[in-house]
Design a protein around this nucleic acid. Structure first.
Lengths: 304, 304
DNA sequence: ATCTTGTTTTGTCTAGGACAAAGTGCGATA
DNA sequence: TATCGCACTTTGTCCTAGACAAAACAAGAT
């Protein structure tokens, strides 16, 4: 509960930083023998830093689709070789983007923003989102998972990206009478940047956007839809999300959101669902967004 | 664990939405007899919506300084009268700000941004932050706590405020050779808007700012400071933070952050601490920030 | 090949006990 | 009269160990 003495993390801290529930950490210890934290005078678990690293490696493999029983008990070496085997293949980046990542490591982070801004003006908003922002976010996430980039640099990059996006979004003013889209994520999903990419793309398609930000409780999403009566409700899910509660949330939304509202869901978390409620349109990747929306616009025009 | 059947919330959902830990919910039930959830076939707790409302009322009173033992057992009526007694006195808002809040309830949220933008150009950045943004955030928080504003509207307001701030920040370019300030919050503190207000104010003071965003783990803050060597590390704490872990974090930062870096901490969460580590400068309210920073700048000039 | 049916894995829940840190009250001291 | 130190109470979080439903998998039948 108390301070982390520079090296030993409490179960709460480990749970926060790794995203693994406290109960899960305890049950892994019981079942698989890992993690095996030290205990302080009070019998509380104290996780050394190296176990934390190992947990991160485990998380990455779980995200890649492996199962806990076959991953958690492995020692550091086995994990490393598995990582290499599963995650090795990787899309390379455009050289100009590598340049941005390089700037992250120098002592002058303010240059990143300039570079991004330059990319934006050169590529235009749509290409910027699809070809620069999305790959950068993915790549940074991978680098972090591999342990080759500290989290704070990923934060830093996200922050600069969001800054540029935040400036770009109001520039694109939707035409009069554009359809309204409500954007948000559900509780547990705290990545704002996906939402902003979508927002910018939507505006380019002539939609009016209302961004509620992240982690809006389901009943609040329902309330917002009831009050604002948007034509479309767009939700973003990252890969962290568990499937069961995700499905449950989608079903509840389908039931309670006004009939007139079209539901669309995107992000990695939802791409791997087998089936979704019938009213929900799934956007499997960002570049599928624009076509899907054109379809929605056509349909909507017909109904009215 | 599974879906909430429209009305009955699982302990996980209640914990998320109310911000009260799962263990705490269970121990309150044991000690004070409230909340007293229904049970599903599996013996799991199912919280009806009205208990959720009551929990929110309780949270508000706890934030106001009352103690759980004297608040949690109370029934709805007693809570209501207590709320009236404790929270009644309240700073009123400037008429132009009331206007903004009114726009929140209409169906046209895009107007809010225009209004805020107008305020910004009229008042200038500093006054905008101190006299518009901060009061609006406070007021919206109060309205939400009272139950007279749905959360999603508070989200909406924050989002618009952040949008305007995000646009305003790059406009203020620090002079050459300005001191670098690293901005972030620690895990558990997810309010980005305070950070952005501070960032804008700092830039107006001629500092170069690097915003890491929210919820950076302590060791990552240390890593960032070691790598980037900023002159100042600025942390923001809202009132949600518990005192003990807050102090622990501050102490650890004091120990591990490079000596040359000045530590400053602000926000309601830190204003009510009795004592802080000696290297940490506490900013009790936003308008104290500018003077404190001028002092730091002077001091720094002398050292170099 | 696709669907149905067992079997195993896995995350989250439950109960009640324990304890340290935070808060409170009271008496003693300057 | 105000401030400090010390005992007492409150309170959040941790602990163990057991249970079970939903998801993932494997195998057999159509």
């Amino acid at each position: 509960m108390t301070a982390s003495t520079a090296q030993a993390l409490s179960i709460d801290e480990v749970s926060r930083d790794s995203g693994i529930g406290k109960d899960t950490l305890r049950v892994w210890e019981r079942r698989y023998g890992f993690p095996q934290p030290l205990r302080n005078d009070n019998g509380e678990r104290n996780y050394p830093a190296d176990q934390m690293h190992r947990l991160r490696a485990i998380c990455r493999l779980l995200d890649a689709g492996l199962r806990p029983g076959s991953v958690v008990p492995l020692d550091a070496e086995a994990l490393a070789s598995l990582s290499e085997a599963s995650g090795g293949v990787d899309a390379r980046l455009d050289p100009s983007l590598d340049h941005v990542l390089a700037s992250l490591t120098t002592q002058d982070p303010s240059r990143i923003r300039q570079q991004l801004q330059a990319l934006l003006t050169k590529q235009g908003p749509e290409a910027f989102v699809l070809q620069s922002v999305a790959p950068l976010v993915t790549k940074a996430g991978q680098l972090w998972a591999q342990g080759s980039m500290p989290i704070y640099r990923e934060h830093l990059l996200s922050q600069q990206l969001m800054s540029v996006l935040h400036s770009a979004i109001p520039e694109v003013q939707p035409p009069e009478g554009g359809l309204q889209v409500l954007l948000t994520t559900l509780p547990g999903e705290s990545h704002a940047i996906g939402l902003m990419m979508v927002e910018l793309l939507l505006r380019l398609q002539g939609f009016e956007t209302i961004n509620l930000g992240v982690e809006t409780p389901v009943d609040q999403v329902v309330a917002a839809c009831t009050d604002l009566q948007p034509s479309v409700l767009a939700l973003s899910f990252s890969s962290q999300q568990k499937r069961a509660p995700l499905m449950a949330s989608l079903c509840e939304l389908e039931k309670r959101v006004p009939r007139e509202t079209v539901l669309i869901a995107g992000g990695e978390g939802v791409a791997r669902l087998r089936s979704v409620p019938s009213r929900v349109t799934v956007i499997k990747s960002l570049d599928k967004l624009a076509p899907a929306l054109r379809a929605i616009k056509r349909q909507h025009g017909r109904i009215r």
